[in-house]
Each structure stands twice: as C-alpha cells, then as structure tokens.
C-alpha cells in the first residue's frame, strides 16, 4: 500500500515537468476580491428565497419566547436539542421547562429521528447566500440539524458576515474549523428537483428551516 503511495507520487513528479499547465504560477494566488457590504436585510432576503423562515428577536428572553411560541403552536412537546450552554440563549431551558417541553441531547439516532423538531445554535450567518454555519463538537450533535423534519437555529446577529470569505477571514486560522470533526454550511431546507425538475423540500433532511436571528 505504501508502495502505491510512492508510485503515485513518483508518477506525478515525473510527469509534472512535461505538463502543459497554462496560468500556473509558483506562488499561491491570493484573493483581492472586494467583499460585498451586505447586512441583515440581505441575509433575510436570501434565506427566504431558499424557503427558510427568518424571525428577528431582540434579547435572549424574547428569543426564548419565540421558540416556545413555535413549539406550543405546533404542539411539539419533545425536542432534539444541543446542550443549552451551546445554544447560548440563557432563558431558553427554564422557558421550555415551564411550557412542559422535554429536551433530548443525545442517544440512539433511531429514537432521535422520531422527534418532531431539532434546536441548535449556529456560529455564524452569511448574508450574501442566506447561509448559517453549524459547527459540531462537544455535545453538539450534527443530527439535530438533520434528522427532525423541522430545524430551528438560533443565531446571534453579531455573528452575521457579508460572505463566506469574510467569515473565514474572521477566524484565527484554519485550526478553528479543523478542530471540529464536522461543520456544515446550511442554505435553506433540504431540497431536490430530481423528479422532472419539480422542486420538493425535505427529501432527506428537514423540510422546514426556521432561523431566529437575535440580538
């Protein structure tokens, strides 16, 4: 096997000098593309274009109330959630308990798949594409944003970036993303158009994405 590694690398090294590679330069090209000065309005417009629902909330108390309202309106009594400290809305656990909502944070995926709604945080929102950045890690199951038919994501509006590049620029280095085994950029609910190009939501992932942009 290590033999194959050496053979492939040798083959590349032998052929590269003869390769016609137009526009190849030895130095690594750097970006000098202007980032658009997009803000909250753009984010909401883009996310809604993708069939996501965006709700604006003030402080964390109002955010918690919004979540409870959505859950009680739909009579959802059980949720698949990230640990509260990972979501960062401090009033949420008490409010949910008051409303009689039971939260599950981990467990067997077969059981979790039966829950009607998933609640997660998001570490950033990207305005120009209506995207939220959901990063896995300590306690933060990637399935909470995937298995239930509805995904509610809470995003701090101070974490809104004009675009993906601006978000990456804000990170100290590549280590931040490399430190999580799984990160996903989510742009709208699950969709397919495989059958006669007819757009359908929720083919495998959530059919509904509700983003609560707070602060």
């Amino acid at each position: 096997m290590s033999d194959s590694r050496q053979q492939v690398l040798n083959a590349i090294r032998q052929t590269l000098p003869n390769a016609l590679l137009p526009d190849a330069h030895p130095e690594h090209p750097k970006r000098s593309i202007a980032t658009p000065p997009d803000g909250i309005d753009r984010f909401i417009a883009e996310a809604e274009l993708l069939s996501a629902r965006v709700i604006r909330a003030g402080d964390s108390l109002e955010t918690a109330e919004q979540v409870v309202r959505i859950l009680t309106e739909n009579n959802w009594r059980r949720v698949f959630a990230w640990p509260w400290e990972e979501i960062g809305c401090k009033e949420l656990p008490d409010r949910l308990a008051d409303a009689g909502v039971a939260a599950h944070f981990q467990g067997n995926p077969v059981d979790l798949a039966a829950l009607p709604v998933g609640i997660t945080g998001a570490e950033a929102a990207l305005a120009d594409t209506g995207t939220i950045v959901v990063r896995g890690g300590e306690g933060r199951s990637m399935l909470a944003s995937l298995l239930p038919p509805v995904h509610i994501a809470l995003v701090d509006s101070r974490r809104l970036f004009p675009c993906l590049s601006a978000y990456l620029d804000s990170l100290p280095g590549s280590d931040h993303l490399a430190a999580a085994s799984n990160t996903v950029f989510i742009s709208g609910p699950s969709r397919t158009a495989d059958i006669e190009q007819t757009l359908t939501l929720g083919v495998h992932g959530p059919r509904e994405l509700i983003i609560i942009l707070w602060g």
């Binding site: 993906l164 085994s181 996903v184």
Partner: peptide, 18 residues
C-alpha cells in the same frame, strides 16, 4: 449561490461528539 448543505469533514468523531 450555495448548495443547501456544504459539509466540511475533518476526520472521525472526537471525544465529546454525540
């Protein structure tokens, strides 16, 4: 503008990943 899910995968689950 972006595909719905763009996943970045860095190795298997880590300690603490549910």
């Amino acid at each position: 503008k972006m595909t719905v899910y763009t996943s970045l995968i860095n190795g298997p689950r880590r300690q603490g990943d549910p």
